[in-house]
């Protein structure tokens, strides 16, 4: 029979081991990325961050892809935030319980649709439609990518903002109503401000999804290593970091592989920064309601 103390120790070390293991994996991935990217960083230096991409002339500037990633992510947010916020306000504050019970799972189901399906719809339906409507050069464009990514970011934004607003104590909403505020005044002045950290972190998670998405984007963005002209031209084609890696990976060798790993580091960094911001905001929400300032 093992003593209780020993058992406790064993549990302690087992879980410590598991936690360490997952941290180690992340570190290995990062180290691996660096080792693999190093030859490109060494050989190209700041050329890596230029906008010139020409394989025959040995120019590998990934700036167009970085720009493309940020551009589609911001564009997707412009599409998804108003829609998502509106939908979550309706779900959490206005919809009768019966309708909420049907709608919320349906919206969350949108998150479960494989991204290739979105890409396919984007390429076949949306791309064609935009092509016909605006008389563009081809069915691929930033606009198509932005619209599809906006829809893909929607379920996360709706679901997380809804949770944030549902978490605002009913006491507060009652207090506002009892002071003669209308339902809309209560939503605008009490519920949304009280849930703002949660809503912001929902938006950032949505943006993370838009930046990390590969398959759907690859099918509709055009995969051209070029900055859009002018820089906000949504009808132009371009590339994103994820699509760049996915498209080039299969048929590349030599330094291009290292360049792709450098693109991976870039992506990793962007997403990591966003998730840190999101965590920070979550902590602040909790503090706000525990009375710390």
């Amino acid at each position: 029979m093992i003593s209780r103390k020993l058992k406790d120790k064993m549990v302690h070390y087992t879980f410590f081991g598991i936690a360490t293991f997952s941290v180690l994996i992340i570190s290995f991935i990062f180290i691996f990325l660096f080792v693999k990217a190093y030859p490109a960083i060494d050989a190209l230096g700041t050329g890596l961050l230029s906008k010139e991409w020409n394989i025959s002339r040995n120019q590998f500037g990934i700036l167009p892809a970085i720009y493309g990633s940020v551009f589609v992510a911001i564009g997707a947010l412009i599409v998804a935030v108003p829609l998502g916020l509106g939908a979550s306000i309706y779900l959490s504050e206005i919809a009768p319980n019966r309708i909420r019970m049907i709608l919320k799972p349906l919206i969350e189901l949108l998150a479960g649709i494989p991204s290739i399906v979105y890409g396919f719809i984007g390429a076949i339906l949306l791309g064609r439609f935009l092509y016909d409507t605006f008389g563009m050069r081809g069915p691929n464009s930033f606009l198509a990518a932005i619209l599809i990514l906006g829809i893909m970011a929607l379920p996360i934004i709706v679901s997380m903002s809804d949770d944030a607003m549902k978490a605002v104590p009913k006491d507060l909403k009652d207090a506002s109503l009892a002071l003669g505020a209308t339902k809309w005044q209560t939503i605008r002045k009490v519920t949304i401000p009280a849930a703002i950290s949660g809503i912001t972190s929902a938006v950032i998670m949505g943006m993370g999804r838009a930046i990390g998405e590969t398959m759907a984007v690859m099918l509709i963005i055009g995969s051209v290593m070029r900055m859009p002209v002018p820089f906000f031209n949504v009808f132009d084609t371009g590339n994103t970091l994820t699509a760049l890696i996915a498209v080039q990976m299969g048929e590349s060798h030599g330094i291009i592989i290292n360049v792709l790993f450098a693109a991976g580091i870039m992506l990793f960094t962007i997403v990591a920064v966003m998730s840190i911001i999101s965590d920070y905001l979550q902590v602040r929400t909790t503090e706000k309601f525990e009375g710390k300032r």
Partner: peptide, 26 residues
């Protein structure tokens, strides 16, 4: 008809804004 609830439920705003809220919404 004003109301005070069982559990104190001030808004997470400043003290002054809490008082002024009712005037503002009305």
């Amino acid at each position: 008809i004003g109301m005070v609830f069982q559990k104190p439920n001030p808004f997470p705003f400043s003290i002054a804004d809490n008082i002024y809220y009712g005037c503002q919404v009305n």
